[in-house]
Structures are given as structure tokens and as C-alpha cells.
Design a binder for these strands. Structure first.
Lengths: 126, 126
DNA sequence: AATATAACGCAACCTTGTTGCATTAACAAA
DNA sequence: TTTGTTAATGCAACAAGGTTGCGTTATATT
């Protein structure tokens, strides 16, 4: 498990996530880069970058898969489980930096939490 | 907007949600009832029951749409935004009764929150 | 430069969910 | 209880996001 070859697709996709500090959906990436790279390639590179702990993914509104850069994750563990914010006006999604304290639930083991907050972002908020 | 006719499909689907106190995915309902009712019908009835404030929906793992009974919702407002718990062992999903306090986010307006917690449920937890 | 094989492109496919339209059935009124 | 209106249904075809198999290309190693 590892990105072993620095291909064009890997390079271009990584640049996307480095220049934009927001999350990007696979769909948007395909719309944007689909002429340059096959969608299969894009999906596979995203998968691999996630495996390697470089990107993390989550589900946005309507079940679309979004990706964003990781902070301090390794290929063995994704440890930046944080909320995501999706603007209902402009559609933009980004990562929030705080963590939400959850109450202990008796007899259950929490492994993953996915918190998606929807509303109006800074730019769309009047 | 309202369920104006008590049809077989409405009756059977409502019974599903009344006898099981857990959430059920549209997919599971189609697998279970697809011989009796057309999947289109099932999707439409679920839609309508949600419009009427009888069911609420949310996205589970893998972007599947899940439905569960509402508590005190009306056709104009779904006000039971609560976390959902999905067991990674048995796949079962249910509604949690607590609410999670979110920190205020400056310059943003929170409208909806979707919190999906994944882990081991009471039965699968050792 | 030769070579092994990861990565790619393409086409075909899968799944969840939606739409248009003709037919059926729920329910109110006669 | 028959009739008439129209909501609800079934069917087929479609839509969109994503996946798979396989032959070809290109990266990195020797």
C-alpha cells in the first residue's frame, strides 16, 4: 500500500488539494479533469491517496464522496475525524478544526463518527 | 401534501416501521418487499411519509438512504435532528436520543446537522 | 537500453434512485 | 352500490455515481 509511482494524475490531483484548502468531491474532480484523465483513473488515485493517509474522505449531501487533505494521518490509521461543513448556498465544503465531544454510550463501542454540518458559509452568510 | 389514501403499500410500510424500532434502508425494504410492491412505489411512499412528518431520512454508510419513525414532526418541519448509530458488525442502524451540543461557528449559520456514529451495537459488543 | 509491473484508458457494467405514462384502485358523492 | 374523480401503482426506460476486466502505456529499477 503506497503511492509508488509519481504519475501525471497523482501530481495533478495532489496539486488540486494543495492549492485549494477546501474539500473537493470526486464528481467535481471528474468534471474538472475528466478531459485530461479518465474517471476510472481519478477514482483509483483518490482511493490510493486515501489508503496512504494523504487524503481522507467523507460523504456530503446526497451521498457524494468528498475528499480533503489529511493532517497527520498514516496509511494505517486515519485519525483526523473532524466535522465537515457544507454550504447550502454555494455548495462549498470544508473541514472544521474543532472536535465534538460525544457522550459515552453504554455497551456500545464508537469507532467512527461522521458529522456533517450544513448551513451558510462565511461568504454566503449575510 | 398528505397521505390521502390508505393503500396496501402505505399500510405494509408503516407496519414495518412500527414493529421494528430501528431504522430501515430503502434498499432493505425493496429487497424485502420488492416482490409485493414495485420499487418505484416503495420509494414514492417513503418520500411521502417523510413529507408528512411520519418518517425522517438520513444517509448511512456508503450513501444509502435510511428511514426511521419521527417523533413529533409535522409536515412543515422535521425537528428531531438526532444522531444515528450504525453497527459495523451487523449493519443495524438506530436513532440515538441525545442531542449533541455544537460550538457556535462565527459567521456561519447552521441549518442542519447529520451525525452518524459507527461502531459496535449492544448486541455485537462483547 | 531492457524489463517488470504499476498505472492507465476504454468499454461495459453495477447499484441506487428517478421519470413518464398508461393502468388500477381508493374514496367520496350520488 | 354504482359511478366518477384522481391519487397511487407498475412497468420500462433512464440517470448518475461509481466499479471491474482487460489490453496497453509508462514509470522506475537493473
Amino acid at each position: 500500500m503506497g503511492v509508488i509511482r509519481k504519475t501525471k494524475a497523482v501530481e495533478v490531483l495532489l496539486k488540486e488539494f494543495n492549492t485549494n484548502s477546501v474539500a473537493i468531491s470526486a464528481k467535481a474532480l471528474i468534471e474538472q479533469l475528466g478531459d485530461t484523465f479518465n474517471k476510472t483513473t481519478i477514482y483509483r488515485v483518490l482511493d490510493k491517496l486515501e489508503d496512504d493517509g494523504i487524503l481522507h474522505s467523507f460523504l456530503g449531501k446526497e451521498g457524494l464522496k468528498w475528499y480533503a487533505k489529511c493532517n497527520g494521518c498514516t496509511s494505517t490509521e486515519h485519525n483526523d475525524v473532524h466535522p465537515h461543513f457544507q454550504c447550502l448556498s454555494c455548495g462549498r465544503v470544508d473541514c472544521l478544526t474543532f472536535t465534538v465531544p460525544l457522550p459515552k454510550i453504554p455497551n456500545r463501542k464508537i469507532e467512527v463518527t461522521q458529522l456533517l454540518i450544513q448551513g451558510k458559509c462565511e461568504e454566503c452568510f449575510v
